[in-house]
Design a protein around this nucleic acid. Structure first.
Lengths: 198, 198
DNA sequence: GGGCTTAATTTACAATGTGTAGTATACTAA
DNA sequence: TTAGTATACTACACATTGTAAATTAAGCCC
């Protein structure tokens, strides 16, 4: 198979980058529903037919872009800690890496996360993050305080995942008024409510 | 002006109800992007041109349906408590009313909240809920424990609003496996982390 | 450099969807 | 009953979609 060659062909990379840039640009000018293949390829300065050589339609393009995004986030977050004795500082550092990655690619993330009516990227991050939380909690003894308090673990994970992703969304919408480090520590404070429970 | 008459004309109500029903029905069969005015009016058994007498386009229809939704939620939640001495049980009851309203209109809410790629309704609820939280917190002394712990109030509100709406979304996606009363109490437990702080 | 492979372009076409006319009909409310 | 209005119907110009075929251009490997 020549899949590896196909994936590294600079012409393909160029076309997809042009599409991605045009996508981010156009979404700052119009809503997703106004984004047509016509407009997109015109802004990307490629032929309309070329678009269909890469994606089935705009939804398909969103899906594949979201796939790429998740891959990057995954490599930034790394494997969930399997340490039996979680280090709070390490938690904060992981979160900080995540926020810094978003901050560095702020233009893209603000567009796909905080621009309204493009739920796919947020969905994907939320799902990924939920799984990540489940793995982390299960590999630790963290279930203890949750269960001790009579909290259903499933609900707690829904709650926490939505809270963190949603806060990041608000943070982006407000043009990141706090540093990633500060926000990460705020997450920790909110999570523990100021008590140093574990 | 005859606006009031227009709004009560049974023909108008009938057409809009047909459109709303067709909307909910079709979204269970296809994604929003596949929903056209053609398909919608066909399913609603009204003429396509009639659609444009009510809405500019599908986005406009979503906006107006979301307006109606917020009006209903607003009347269910009622005014934020201005009581200086918040009653935890009252908090839980308000939340329970909210969840029961959603549960009673489960078909609609599951479609517009938990069906993917229709962010407008969730956005509106989140914004409304955020404002509601701000009003509630400001009218109480609730800022105290947040500030005492060094938590930025703005961030805490982002966090809590996203958490609650997101949890409701997950709850709907999983076909409401808990009763509204149980879930409301879970929110309380998570919020206080089992400690009875106030 | 030259041959091979593949991406991109160009042009064309049918099908569907959009938004807006004008007119006719049916319903509502006073 | 009558005036007002919501809906139906038909028609039209235009935009968008998805695909096909042939051609051009770029990149890869020896």
């Amino acid at each position: 198979m020549s899949n590896k060659k196909k994936q590294t062909d600079p012409r393909i990379l160029r076309t997809r980058q042009l599409l991605k840039d045009a996508f981010v640009q156009l979404l700052q000018e119009m809503d997703l529903e106004k984004l047509t293949v016509n407009r997109l390829t015109e802004a990307a300065t490629i032929n309309r037919v070329t678009f269909y050589l890469h994606y089935q339609d705009i939804s398909d393009m969103l899906d594949k872009m979201a796939d790429e995004m998740i891959l990057e986030i995954s490599s930034v977050l790394g494997e969930p800690e399997t340490d039996e004795h979680p280090d709070h500082e390490e938690n904060i550092r992981v979160l900080e890496r995540f926020l810094e990655h978003i901050s560095l690619n702020g233009k893209f993330y603000k567009t796909v996360l905080a621009t309204r009516r493009i739920p796919i990227f947020k969905e994907r991050i939320l799902t990924f993050f939920t799984d990540w939380l489940v793995t982390r909690i299960e590999s630790r003894g963290e279930a203890s305080f949750v269960q001790k308090a009579g909290i259903q673990q499933e609900i707690f994970i829904w709650y926490d995942a939505a809270a963190i992703i949603g806060t990041i969304e608000s943070w982006l919408r407000n043009d990141m008024p706090y540093t990633p480090a500060f926000l990460a520590r705020q997450f920790y404070l909110i999570h523990t409510r100021g008590f140093d429970q574990r």
